Computed example of a mutant assay.
Amino acid sequence: MTGNSSTYLGELFRSSRKKGEEGLPLLSVTLNDGLIVRDLLDRRTETNLEANEHLLVKSGDIAYNMMRVWQGALGRASVDGLVSPAYVVLRSNSKIDSLYAEYLFKTPRMIYLFWAYSYGLTKDRLRLYFNDFARIPVTIPNLEEQKKIAQLLSTWDKAITTTAQLLANSKQQKKSLMQQLLTGKKRLLDKNGVRFEGRWRKLPFSDLVSLVKTKFDPKSNADDVRECIELEHIAQESSSLIGSTNTIDVVSTKTAFEKNDVLFGKLRPYLRKYWKADRQGVCSTEIWVFRTKAKVAADYIFQVVQLDSFIEVANKSSGTHMPRADWNVVKDFLIPTPPLEEQQKIAALLSAADQEITTLQQNLDALKQEKKALMQQLLTGKRRVMVN
Score class of each variant (00 low, 15 high):
R127Q: 11
N142H: 10
G198P: 06
L121C: 10
V194P: 00
V212Y: 03
W200L: 13
N192W: 09
L113R: 12
A164I: 07
S170G: 09
L128G: 02
V212N: 07
E230Q: 14
Y129H: 13
D207E: 15
L167A: 07
Y112C: 00
L189Y: 03
N142E: 11
Y129G: 12
L166W: 07
S206F: 09
R125E: 02
L203A: 13
K175D: 08
C228R: 14
W200K: 11
T162M: 01
Q180W: 02
T122N: 04
L203G: 10
E227K: 14
T214N: 09
P204K: 10
A168L: 10
K175M: 07
L152R: 02
L203S: 14
N192F: 11
L166N: 14
F205Y: 09
K158P: 00
L208S: 02
W115E: 13
H233W: 08
R135C: 01
Y112H: 12
S176L: 13
Q172F: 09
R226L: 15
R199E: 15
L189D: 04
L128Y: 03
P141R: 03
A134Y: 02
G184I: 02
E197D: 09
D124N: 15
E227I: 12
K219T: 11
K202H: 15
K174S: 11
A168W: 02
L182C: 06
S170R: 09
Q151N: 07
G120V: 10
Q165E: 12
K174Q: 15
H233D: 13
F133K: 06
A235C: 05
G120P: 04
F133R: 05
V212M: 06
G198H: 08
T162A: 11
D207T: 08
K185F: 03
L128I: 09
W200T: 11
S154M: 08
Q179L: 11
R201Y: 14
N131R: 13
